[in-house]
Design a protein around this nucleic acid. Structure first.
Lengths: 203, 203
DNA sequence: CATGTTTGCCAACACTTGTTGACAAACGGA
DNA sequence: TCCGTTTGTCAACAAGTGTTGGCAAACATG
């Protein structure tokens, strides 16, 4: 006690909180809010997603969301912060690397957990320069990194950029705009169709 | 006279209005509002673009925007309605059709007039199912049409969908997210790099 | 049990949004 | 000149937003 005001000190952790979750408050509520935020941001985009909608989905009050995360922007950052592991393209023969890269990304998008993060991020990046920068950083690690590691640094940035156009365009049309017949095709067919295009940028 | 209430009847056109513009009010103001709306929607997206911002940019009052176009949605539709002429792929040898298609689209995006329309539409489509449907209709006419005309109907819809992923992904990364080094490359270099990918989907 | 902390809910504030209506100035025809 | 229509401005409304503070219950600790 006498440390500082309890409301503003995130280090004051109650006994019921699970250590290691990173949050100062109830772990269950925090997780419920984060899950609801992910789903809401992914489904409606940043502006359309209201704090009240997130709170309702999580079964708590809107002011709870504010106490757990300090602002809507903070909630978005916390909800969308993910640790994706990058591919190691060197483990595959050069002719298979395009397909490997596409499959890796499609797997991420199809995964309900990580996919919602990416969809929310992509949706928001279209209207927020800040998030666009974050997305570029993620893609730099996810694409430019492995490409440079596998091919060397000459022109890797350009190659990665063009690969990003193909992969983001696929995500946009299939998961956000839901263009038919693309959205209904099985994932394997999509991977098979797009792989040669990415392979071309790698060669 | 005695027809109906003048405020709600769009057919009542004053003598000062220019016939053929399609609008019942002053042609100059209408055009100023439409230009401002295009620029604002393209720059900030649908939700972020406020009627007051459009009005300020056009140099008129916000209520004027409402009287000319009945709602924000109506303004968006009027501002973003464009008539793009589709390519005729049959006029080129099959091996050049990919490049022709890409160049046609990049030319549209780079054109300040039509480009703003498309950027606004793409930005908005990411968060509005209605606009996503409109965009799909435009792309169907711009891509699926020429592809089916050139290659026949077998699998044309799928081919067009994959071509759309590449072309929309390029537009997203270059004109909206402004990823580097992609955004700074000359248009010719972009066309040359992306053309083989589209060509692959055509073959 | 008494106490202080945490959790959660309720109500409200300040602000912005799209939208509407009333009213003054310009303009054109009779 | 007079009058109706049109054009434009001002102020306001109703709804929804993120955000804040206060207050009651739960809960662990002494």
């Amino acid at each position: 006690m006498s440390d500082s005001s309890p409301t503003t000190n995130p280090a004051a952790r109650p006994a019921t909180a699970v250590p290691g979750t990173g949050g100062p408050r109830s772990a269950g509520t925090r997780r419920a809010i984060l899950d609801a935020a992910r789903a809401t941001f992914a489904a409606r985009g940043y502006e359309q997603a209201t704090i009240r909608a997130v709170a309702a989905r999580a079964g708590v009050d809107a002011s709870m969301v504010m106490r757990y995360f300090q602002s809507k922007a903070g909630l978005f950052t916390a909800a969308v912060t993910m640790d994706l592991q990058a591919v190691d393209l060197r483990s595959a023969p050069p002719s298979d690397r395009g397909e490997q890269l596409v499959r890796h990304f499609v797997d991420r998008w199809e995964d309900p957990r990580q996919g919602d993060d990416l969809i929310a991020m992509l949706r928001t990046a279209a209207t927020s320069e800040t998030v666009a920068g974050q997305l570029q950083a993620v893609l730099s690690q996810q694409i430019a990194g492995p490409v440079a590691a596998a091919l060397g640094d000459d022109g890797a940035a350009e190659r990665a950029a063009f690969i990003a156009t193909q992969l983001l365009g696929l995500a946009l049309c299939r998961y956000i705009l839901r263009f038919e017949p693309l959205a209904s095709l099985p994932a394997t067919a999509v991977v098979a169709a797009v792989a040669p295009s990415v392979q071309h940028y790698l060669a």
